[in-house]
Nucleic acid binder design. Sequence first.
RNA 1: GCACGCUUAGCUCAGUUGGUUAGAGCAUCUCGUUUACACCGAGAGGGCCGGGAGUUCGAGUCUCUCAGCGUGCACCA
Length: 712
Amino acid sequence: MALHDKYTKPYDPALYEKDIYNSWEESGYFNPDKLPHLEDRTETFSIILPPPNANGRLHAGHGSDFVLKDIMGRYHRMRGKKVLLLPGADHAGFETQGVYEKKLQKEGRSRFGMERDALYAEIFDFVMENKHFMEDDVKKLGTSCDWSRNTFTLDAHVISHVEQTFFQMYKDGMIYRSKRSVHWNPKFKTSLADIETTFEDRTEPFYYFQYGPFEIGTSRPETKFGDKYVVMHPDDTRYKQYKHGETFEAEWINGTVTATVIKDTAIDMDFGTGVMTITPWHDLTDFEIAQRHDLNFEQVIDLDGRLMDVAGEFAGEKIHIARPKVVEKLQKKGLVTRIEPKQQHAVRVCERTGVVIEPQLMDQWFVKMKPLTTLALDALATGKISFVSPQFEKIFTHWMENPIDWNISRQIVWGIQIPAWFKNKGTADEEILVQKEKPSGSGWVQDPDTFDTWFSSGQWPLVTLGYPDGADFVEYYPTTVMETGRDLVFKWVPRMIMFGLYLAKDVPFKDIYFHGMVLDGKGQKMSKSKGNTLSPIELADAFGTDAMRMSFIVGNTPGQDMALTTDKVRAYKKFANKLWNVARFIYSNTEDFDLAAYDSSQLDDDALTILRAFDDLTSDISRDIEAYRLYLGAEKIYHYIWHELADKIIESSKAHLTDDALPKNKAAAQYLLLRVFEGSLKILHPFMPFITEEIWKDFPRKDKDLLMVEPW
RNA sequence: GCACGCUUAGCUCAGUUGGUUAGAGCAUCUCGUUUACACCGAGAGGGCCGGGAGUUCGAGUCUCUCAGCGUGCACCA
């Protein structure tokens, strides 16, 4: 019994998990080039892991992320494929700089006024010091990824690749510089891409003002100083006596203005009075109207969110302070016709910081999206990519058919600085050169802006595999599957597809699997402010990584959100212990048995039925995994071990195991137990790798390797 | 407004191509320590599978419709 003393105590994951992960790592099998029987591994299976923020810890969403992919990887490795799971870390430009700015604030410092290089170096050191926490978390989840290929989005070769892409796109006319309406975050002082913003419902007063002969509606009186165009729908019969282009005098905030009538179909006749004035510098819709009619633009609000000189007496005031004062002044002038105290409308805010976006006209670099989205739509139409959950196809298609050009300039230092040079910037004879080296001659300064994070992470499959001529690129591109959260259906996935098609002329992956969000037990979003978050790391510490993994898999259907409770994790901890005791029973009852010497032709029909049923289960679960139904496979092996192997096969074996008068029956029972147990351990391994590997150590077979590379 | 999703046991959810008696975890109740396991075992209660209509020999599963909930969107002046 000495050999199996460890089984007399309940399974304690903390005793084994770290050593087991180390033994996997030391075996080299995470690296596809070092797998055993390499000559037989003719097929590859590869996944580029989404790089988490180098400076963050893993949260519940990452739990789904890594566990789903690791199960696929482990399954295909055991099925004899050459498996590559490639890990990485993202510098997460804006998000990380935000974290660092908070740190600076606590120290009584600010990034404004700091030397660019000094700030970059500080953040770089900070991130490098903290990056290993995130990587330790990835290991804690049991992820069988190849750390020798670990890549960071600010590695020198990544930076150089991203710059090359920028040059090529500029040369191809895919990138242009233009003064356009951008989403400006006045607090963090950077522009943002469309997808980095979101709408928040606000209830605010809605004002009606008399503007010449018209009554106009607005929720933003403080932007109205420079307004000199009044816009209505050409088909609006209420205003048919007014002709496009005619002018009139109107008494306004700071005196009389001359206004021009504009007719444009962008106006919703049913909204407000059907008439509005426009502020092209600070509103995207207004900007587009102004462009169509070649109108003048005037800046009213500066980059700090303060009113400019055009506001007269209000100049220098923060907009939210100026608003009631402007209304008061208009009231005194008798120009306020009515106020709707509570009108619900959506305000665009920065997704990461919640700061209200102030649209501004700025010179920025833009990527032309239409040619790229056309490539992506073709790939979908010709079946080069396919969605595991078809509902995403429509969402994806809709987005691809209605693209807006992508602003890739960010006014932060934490990222890859844009390799473009300006001379006489902002003047009439401005010159621009797009190149890595500083141009000769005097007066050239580099664009201080950095690339949007998604500009580099969008090229992730290419850069990590060594596009265009790296050995990995040749062997693994396109990768097998992209599995990620459904929140990245716009942000990340389309960009990888477009960059892949544009640069490598092929998709970066064939199948796209979106998992849902991880919600709390009440079906609500997890958030720090609600205090309802569950960390996969803490769950793994409390209940074991295997139990945590199972709880992230069972019930996690593609594209559907999943509720997670500690009760669920606890249930799988019990299952781990159940398996542990199954091992104890089987090993202690087969110590006098020689598995290799047993002649299986002596088995009776009942035993053969059990073995056949197990083979059926194996192929059933294989099909489930290959069709991305991991949630079903996990449930099936759980059910089998508990309610077939433990409840039935072990129970009915007890009579034979004690019956020494019939050694033939005893041996048959022992054989059956070991065979079914061996298979069960293998099938369960991708889902619960640690405990199965630990139990495997004691399995009575001489020629065995680590369970992670045993043939399925 | 448009699009997508959801509605199955008290709670959170599975149910893969339509096919025996609709399952799991947690919760509830009863009994039980006899070769593993009390982090357990045996068993029980609890479901007009959101409402209605249709297709079919057969519908939780397919179609239509209604209702409620949720999510997303370049509407929101």
